[in-house]
């Protein structure tokens, strides 16, 4: 019912479900060990930015395009190539079809 044999191993989701439940229990226990002295609407809840003023909320949220900046910058060569490939021109879509058709014909027929 639960176990999938993959030929060289197996996969059983129930073990994982149990593991996840145990992990959450552990997290809950650790969390409940925390300090109880939390007071709402006091100085405690304000964020501390080394004394700098807090920016408005739109500016504090990191934009999606900036999230993997390091990754995309280090792969700049690849990404310029990929961007060049995706022209958005309908003729190029057809051209790619013809190219793949030609490759398949070369390998398969000749």
């Amino acid at each position: 019912m639960f176990t999938v044999e993959t030929g060289s191993g197996f996969w059983n989701p129930i073990i994982w479900v149990i593991a996840i439940v145990v992990t959450f229990l552990l997290i809950y226990i650790l969390r409940s060990l925390g300090k109880k002295g939390y007071k709402k609407d006091t100085e405690q809840v304000k964020s501390f930015l080394s004394g700098n003023p807090e920016y408005p909320k739109e500016k504090m949220h990191i934009k999606a395009s900036n999230l993997y900046w390091g990754f995309t910058t280090s792969l700049k060569g690849l990404y310029t190539l990929l961007r060049k490939m995706h022209t958005g021109n309908t003729s190029d879509y057809v051209l790619w079809f013809v190219i793949i058709l030609a490759i398949f014909l070369l390998v398969e027929v000749i």
Binding site: L82, H86, T87, G88, N89, T90, S91
Partner: peptide, 10 residues
């Protein structure tokens, strides 16, 4: 012009 009808790219 097909080269200009490409707001959707990348």
């Amino acid at each position: 012009d097909v080269r200009k009808v490409r707001r959707l790219k990348e």
